[in-house]
């Protein structure tokens, strides 16, 4: 990894990137064989704020590049930016085990003072990789909160307007404003993803599988009630989403309850019909068990879905996500019903 600081003009930054690749190619020239492979399948813009100090954007992007090589742009909005806006370029490289060639992705780190953020848009336009999707991962929680300042709202809008898709993480966020943000963005034709939804794939896939087969004596349509037990202090987005998802096809009744269980998030999903009850429960930190009153049961591993794993999945879905959209629409109804 190497870095140089550049004035924040797209041409200068791109020139810096060019020099970086030339220097990486030096070894190749000396050895007379390919040693570096430049990889890029998208532009990934990650916006962070002061509260995100524990998050190492560069490291996460470098982990993501194994499956989603990208031109990474880290936009750190911070009071500590000395010149209003400053940038540096670097390359993240990794060498697959047993291979002679390094795979390298380029990364641009931009530090912006909060008042300058709204003006970053034109700079970013010049920095995105041509003809490839632009994904915006917004980790700037202040800009997503109901108390966002005008600069934050404008800054957020400046980046979202460039993006093919915007990814947020509503874990721990206040539900009403989180859902309003998604609904508002969708109404403007934008593709929004929520990592709280991504966290549910481990739940949704086996549950859906039950209705693929004859394991479940009853068809999904006969399950009239759904109970979701969670272990969060308040209802989380993921808890509501799973209720919305599973009840959407037939508008089954959904009840939420709080229990002490393995968390955070959903602990158990119970589906009831007149003749059968299905329980799908986290029975350990890394274990889930599906039980049906017809006697069948099965254990599943519950892998630790860290941010890299969640983003890896989310970056694989670049277009609209119909399942999320349906679940979200139903989740909004459930929230209204709860009031």
């Amino acid at each position: 990894m190497s870095a140089n600081i550049f004035p924040v003009q797209p041409e200068a930054i791109l020139k810096g990137l060019g020099k970086l690749w030339t220097s990486l190619g030096e070894e190749e020239k000396q050895l007379g064989k390919p040693t570096v492979l430049r990889a890029c399948a998208m532009t990934l813009i990650v916006a962070t704020d002061e509260s995100d100090a524990g998050f190492f954007a560069s490291q996460t992007i470098s982990e993501l590049m194994h499956e989603h090589p990208s031109r990474g742009i880290v936009l750190a909005v911070s009071d500590t930016a000395e010149h209003g806006l400053e940038a540096r370029v670097l390359a993240q490289c990794w060498k697959p085990f047993g291979k002679a060639q390094q795979i390298c992705c380029e990364q641009i780190e931009i530090k912006a003072r909060p008042e300058v953020w709204p003006n970053v848009g034109p700079t970013l336009v010049g920095l995105t990789a041509a003809d490839l999707p632009v994904i915006f991962w917004c980790r700037h929680q202040g800009a997503l909160s109901p108390t966002a300042t005008a600069d934050q709202k404008a800054g957020l809008e400046a980046v979202m307007s460039l993006a093919t898709k915007t990814i947020v993480d509503n874990r721990g966020m206040e539900l009403q404003s989180a859902f309003s943000f998604i609904a508002d963005s969708q109404s403007r034709g934008r593709i929004i993803a929520d990592l709280e939804w991504t966290r549910l794939t481990f739940w949704r896939e086996p549950l859906a599988g039950v209705f693929d087969s004859s394991a479940c004596g009853s068809p999904l349509s006969s399950f009239h009630s759904v109970e979701i037990a969670h272990s969060d202090p308040k209802l989380s987005a993921s808890t509501v989403y799973i209720g919305g998802w599973i009840s959407a096809p037939y508008k089954a009744r959904v009840q939420f309850s709080k229990i002490d269980g393995h968390g955070p998030g959903v602990h158990r999903v119970t589906l009831r019909s007149e003749t059968e009850t299905i329980d799908f429960e986290r029975t350990g930190p890394d274990c889930m068990t599906l039980r049906s009153s017809n006697g069948r049961s099965r254990q599943y591993n519950y892998p630790d879905a860290d941010l890299t794993a969640l983003m890896t999945e989310e970056l694989s879905v670049l277009g609209p996500d119909p399942a999320f959209n349906t679940a979200f629409a139903r989740s909004q109804e459930l929230i209204r019903e709860l009031k």
Partner: peptide
């Protein structure tokens, strides 16, 4: 199956 999600779930196989 209305719960299937071909974007995210692996291909299913029957019993």
């Amino acid at each position: 199956n209305p719960l299937q999600d071909s974007l995210r779930f692996a291909r299913r196989v029957p019993p």
